[in-house]
Design a protein around this nucleic acid. Structure first.
Lengths: 232, 232
DNA sequence: TAGTGGTCTAGACCACCGG
DNA sequence: CGGTGGTCTAGACCACTAT
């Protein structure tokens, strides 16, 4: 025998190929892990590891007793890494700059309250700021911060450090929701970003929570031309 | 002892809490898995499973011999599920419609060739189509297809089935690249989508490959108001 | 080269859920 | 209820890489 050892990746690849080649069709039930293990002459846990990877990539579904099935409706699953804005700029070789535009307390619109899961309207801290790359506006941040869950933010000098950075360093979150969409630049936004009114902006909206308690909601407006890249 | 069994999730949560609470700071080295296992009185593989999860979520980095470290530069990692357009529409309770706009062979611009990793310019199949929700334009698809890697597409009646759907069912891919950005609607696009010229469109651009061999590149222009949502 | 994470094994028990 | 996947264990060996 000149056989290499069976690894979980080789099992995964084999099963994946079987599915992609149509030997197992959408909705089909796959053999039990134990049978795969016998066939491939490896331990069941090796098969289990492979299957878990296929679940993660969205190709199959597994249920106890129900068995393993090829997903009926294929999905493409991609992973997005969102870095701190400062590092994103610095790591692309440009100089980072930061500028606080405004800071005040105000009662946010209901749409904002809804996204943060706040029932009764109450004032939050609103911080608008600009992240600059080589001195030019790169990302405009419109942020609401819950002073109830993060009162310490009131002691921070937000003219020197961005809320983005302070929060990441000091306020852990357990969950967040991302929304990505496109929006036309308003007159105000256009002026702040030094672009034309009506330009298409890429918007990253993120709400973060700590155990269901809202921390912050931020809309990041990216300069026209900005791209978010994800790979499999 | 009224102790419950140590599960890998409990280990993960404990380590994560330690990190988020600042007991381990960015860059810090964590104990070896074996030590954690001793401390928590569980098997090393249980610790390993927990650590793998933390790696996946972007909180820590691990290297053989180097050990486990808290990431210096925190990243927010989110997973995007991209469904077949037809299902996306149908599952939101609207009626799906499809319409082929044009089909021809042409030599794509270098930017397209570059994204597909094609060195020498050669003609590809260009298929433009519209996906409709309740009879109204929802997503406009501009697609290039490599007839070299997928010659079968030439036999398909693309006026009846979308290339989107046919490819997913018949052409497996092993890798893809996603680019997300915002773009103003051109005069032509605006007309096809029944919107105003200059409206901000959300664009999902996807290049798919099978073992480095390019299959297709598609730009999907989504109706203003379209949002892509991701959760942790 | 030695220390660390990565993987495989064989076996056991448990948790879920379909029939 | 019984079949299936999910997890834990204890041990072994391997693969990478920091020192």
């Amino acid at each position: 025998m000149a056989e290499r050892k069976t690894t979980w990746k080789s099992v995964r690849d084999r099963v994946r190929d079987d599915i992609l080649a149509g030997r197992f069709k959408p909705g089909d039930r796959l053999p039990r892990d134990a049978d795969f293990a016998d066939t491939l002459n490896c331990a069941r846990s090796t098969v289990q590891r492979a299957m878990q990877d296929l679940v993660d990539s969205g190709l199959i579904e597994r249920r106890r007793k129900g068995g393993t099935h090829v997903r009926r409706e294929p999905i493409a699953r991609a992973t997005l890494d969102i870095r701190v804005t400062r590092l994103e700029i610095e790591q692309s070789g440009r100089e980072y700059g930061y500028q606080l535009i405004s800071l005040k307390e105000a009662v946010p619109p209901v749409s904002v309250l809804a996204k943060l899961g706040i029932a009764a309207p109450r004032p939050l801290l609103r911080a608008d700021a600009l992240h600059l790359a080589d001195g030019r506006p790169y990302i405009l941040e419109e942020r609401w911060i819950c002073t109830q869950t993060t009162p310490e933010i009131l002691q921070v000098d937000l003219t020197r450090i961005s809320a983005n950075e302070w929060l990441i360093k000091n306020k852990p979150y357990s969950r967040y929701e991302l929304r990505l969409y496109a929006q036309k630049a308003s007159a105000t936004t256009a002026q702040q970003m030094e672009i034309d009114q009506g330009d298409a902006l890429f918007v990253i909206e993120r709400a973060t929570f700590e155990d269901e308690r809202p921390i912050t909601l931020v809309k990041s407006f990216a300069q026209p031309g900005y791209q978010l890249v994800a790979t499999t």
